[in-house]
Design a protein around this nucleic acid. Structure first.
Length: 169
DNA sequence: AGCCAGTCTCGGA
DNA sequence: TCCGAGACTGGCT
């Protein structure tokens, strides 16, 4: 994340997520950490009103996704750091409805590069905003979980919560 | 050049 | 039918 980004915690029943905002919108989201989170120094750094509003929307959206519900509103995403290819992948993933899954190969085909399935996997791992950009709904062609940057347990839990049964890996 | 969160094929349990 | 190894893949670092 950039030095000028603002980080705010999002408490959920699954732990405390951490959202990162740039001037353009939500730039990143982290899974709950083990140790203590680094304080955002909220009292020192002034939080722009726009960010406060985004954070409100982000919080609501995140909790809905965690509940297996498709959020009706999202904050603006700032993933300008990603490459053209990655952004294409993320855009496609964003369309996957809760309870549905796609394979890496299908995503690859959707962006016109049917053989880039492996690269799609790489793009998933590079996704700065997991959960809201449902990278966890992307499975291998045989419906098995490939991997997950936030931990396989998270992927498995999120999918089961949405009613998706996955094969062991 | 080397790494991968994939996918397909083929051979052996 | 069900793994596991191997080959091949496209894009990122």
């Amino acid at each position: 994340m950039k030095t000028n980004s603002i980080s705010l915690p999002i408490p959920t029943r699954d732990g405390e997520f951490m959202a990162h905002y740039s001037e353009k919108g939500l730039a990143g989201l982290d899974f709950p950490k083990k140790g203590r989170n680094v304080g955002p120094a909220a009292g020192v750094i002034p939080i722009p009103k726009a960010v406060r509003e985004w954070h409100r929307t982000t919080t609501r959206a995140l909790k809905q996704v965690l509940s297996g519900v498709k959020p009706k509103d999202f904050p603006p995403f700032d993933w300008t750091e990603g490459t053209e290819f990655q952004q294409n992948v993320w855009k496609v993933m964003g369309k996957i409805a809760p309870g549905k899954t796609l394979s890496y190969g299908e995503i690859a085909s959707a962006i016109g590069k049917p053989k880039a399935s492996r690269a799609v996997g790489g793009a998933c791992g590079a996704n700065p905003i997991p959960v809201l950009v449902p990278c966890h709904r992307v499975l291998a062609a045989n419906k098995k979980i490939g991997g997950f940057s936030g931990g396989m347990d998270w992927k498995h839990r999120l999918l089961e919560r949405e009613g998706v049964s996955v094969a062991g890996n």
